[in-house]
Amino acid sequence: MLETVKELLILLIGSSLVSNVVLSQFLGLCPFLGVSKKVETAVGMGSAVIFVITLASTVTAAIYQFMLVPLNITYLQTIVFILVIVALVQFVEMFLKKYMQGLYQALGVYLPLITTNCAVLGIALTNVQKEYGILFSMVSGFSTAAGFLVAIVILAGIREKMAYNDIPESFKGMPITLVTAGLMAIAFCGFSGLL
């Protein structure tokens, strides 16, 4: 029992900070660079990503374990996972809209954007590759998404400050954001001594 908790903790820190999803695995770059102009929207996007990825990795792990493995069709995982994710996001959106207006107001705009976020599919596939069970998949999904939230909020904070800086003409816009992300990636390399 204690062993499991310890492993879960290691997984939590490992996938949120050490091997950060955006800064070291390059998954979910589009929203990372696109929706990071303001801290407020970045927080919204990050929360929506946590919500969807935790749910999606749990569901895909369950489907893998109880459907694909028994039926011996694990080679169909890519097709099954992407369809499950697309359907899931639509379903979650409809559910929130109908029953949880408050949460829908907060996250609704971001939900559809997440469907093509490669992080969702990427994490589902990584979980399978690492042979995580359902519990571990859930924790791995949650912590990876938490890492995304941390990264996108930091980037948004820097970009808000940077708006008043004197940036060379050619570097305005995307290039300077990429440079910032690169510097953040260097900073996050520092976490690699943690575990």
Binding site: M174, L178, G182, A185
Partner: peptide
């Protein structure tokens, strides 16, 4: 490493 990817793409886009 990872940071290099960002820097190279940044330079190419700036160019």
């Amino acid at each position: 490493l990872a940071p290099g990817a960002f820097f190279v793409l940044a330079s190419l886009t700036a160019l």
